[in-house]
Write a protein that binds this DNA or RNA. Sequence first.
DNA 1: GTTAGCACTCATTAAACGAGAGTGCTAATT
DNA 2: AATTAGCACTCTCGTTTAATGAGTGCTAAC
Lengths: 354, 354
Amino acid sequence: MDLSERQLQILQAIITDYVENAEPVGSRSIAKKYDLGVSPATIRNEMSDLEEMGYLTHPHTSAGRVPSDKAYRLYVNELMKKKNLSAKDKRMINDRLSASRDEFDRTIRHAAELLSEITHLASFAMTPATNEETISFIKLLPVDERTLILMIVSEGGQITNTTLRLTVPYTQEALDLLSKNMTVSYKGRTLDDVLKSEIIHDVGSDIEALSSLKGSVMPGFLRTLEDMLNVNLYMEGMTNIFNLPEYTSIDRARDFMELFARKDWFTQKMLARDNGVVVTIGDENDTMKDCTLITATYHVDGKLVGKIGVIGPTRMKYDEITSIMEYLTNNLSESFRLPGSTGDGNAGDKKQKK
Amino acid sequence: MDLSERQLQILQAIITDYVENAEPVGSRSIAKKYDLGVSPATIRNEMSDLEEMGYLTHPHTSAGRVPSDKAYRLYVNELMKKKNLSAKDKRMINDRLSASRDEFDRTIRHAAELLSEITHLASFAMTPATNEETISFIKLLPVDERTLILMIVSEGGQITNTTLRLTVPYTQEALDLLSKNMTVSYKGRTLDDVLKSEIIHDVGSDIEALSSLKGSVMPGFLRTLEDMLNVNLYMEGMTNIFNLPEYTSIDRARDFMELFARKDWFTQKMLARDNGVVVTIGDENDTMKDCTLITATYHVDGKLVGKIGVIGPTRMKYDEITSIMEYLTNNLSESFRLPGSTGDGNAGDKKQKK
DNA sequence: GTTAGCACTCATTAAACGAGAGTGCTAATT
DNA sequence: AATTAGCACTCTCGTTTAATGAGTGCTAAC
């Protein structure tokens, strides 16, 4: 049961108008503003049909029509045209996103800030999940007699280091040996794997000094692995939503804020989403059924995948926002590419239902 | 112009009642609930006097009285008695605050969480400012031919390290020499000082290889210094305030949230506050004139000073909250004491106007 | 198939009203 | 002289009522 050309035009007009003004739109105003060459009465009839098909709703009898989630879905999948970013937005992204591998986290946070500034919505950005990363080698570097640096290098080139302070002195020999043993034991295994497997015994404890050192180092090692696995989540522009008419009720605003207070939960949810630009509208989300959530992925060295997203009411400028996010993530992926590497990171445009 | 005993009793009763119920309190309910042995009429007369002296206000003619900032000030300075923590709260703090020097930031964040949970207010915690810390030594450790670890150790024992990736290979000699030169140049100077002074030239560039290496390392060095100087600010329990009657207006809530969005600004404000338990009420704050802000300080090794605090409406349980914060900061300072060191960190009880 | 016309619906706003809580004053009481 | 009882007065808050107006849905004409 396809929609006629005119129905699509009317639906598009209603969406455009409602997104703009946040108020139920009536037949008369459609007829006046959008030049469809038909009278309000005709539009009324069509609207009635569209409502029957589930694309529109009625807050109450004598109010205008409001697009349903289904209408937005149709719009995102079929009607929406890619928007060209304004020169201002492009400039903003290019200028302010001085990404560099060194300042990874900082860049990611900047990206989230930028996104919320441009879209006037709440935004977030996540550093890549490193579940699949494998360990390349582990090194223990001496600092002073009771202090050492533990360094973990992943195959993907990620390097993390932590300073450990021991309660007893160590010897250089023990240090070297432990480094070697740990590397042998863990090389090629994923962080996840190493952290979960409790096989910490087999690192070798032949020598007394080594065994003691191992005991001191291991907890730090595990903690560092955990830190490597932890994706960082940055949230920006939370207060933007206070300016939106759909959040003038304190309860709505509270719900919204509380969602973000549970960072870890939210992170999990977002990690589960597909790659590329993903739009989930209203009911398609299992929580926040009156929100739309748009995420996009950026790539590091064309491999690791991080996410960036915006959250707002289902009424939002889908065309603009998806375009902005595509531009932004391409820009990010570009910045995070290893000098030598190739591969375009596949920052595609898959609009898909989750 | 001192207050009579009875006036103090009445004032105390009004504060207690208002703090509890958040509604203007009338003469009749005071007479009924608090056994002062006088009739409502007498209380009315006293209330009238108290109002004239600026301790009470009237939302409108025929409403009950509400304590003014001045009244809260008097209460905090004179009337308030130290409260004993409930066993539950004590246990909570003792159990959950498994502080350890290694996981400094984590512990601080936990403390903020805990504080907001116990007080049902918004809380924050700041890591210590290290402006005054001086550099002990700088070390460059080799990782692979183009990667090295830069380590900065402060006199106070703080250790920070960053991984640097160079575009060109380096030599071991150059590395050692640069480490030595940098240590000589910067040893004993404060982080602040080093960062501000642009005297990066005199690190010595006699050798070609050294000069090139220096050029690559210096930006990373400065960035790391900046990171060391940056105090981290953790905010928790923001959404608690939505449950308070004073924040049912969306505008109020928005203002509140927006304040915290500007983390850096807020950090600056908080750094400027005195040590110990400091309470600033309503107008005493230059922003947030309808809030009370309570901060307390904890100590690291009896020296460095970090802050923890709560924010809420001027109507709050001053006695409980200050007691909780004192207990909590003492606990923190205790945990962050170096094994060898002494000195009680002077976590005093100075209630003072800012 | 389209449009004009018109009755009808329903949210929103303003005004009117009564109830209730609390004060402030005066006069009586201790 | 201090305290209290009594009462008129004020102001908020919730409810009711009425008017307004935007917008639909239907019918009949084009």
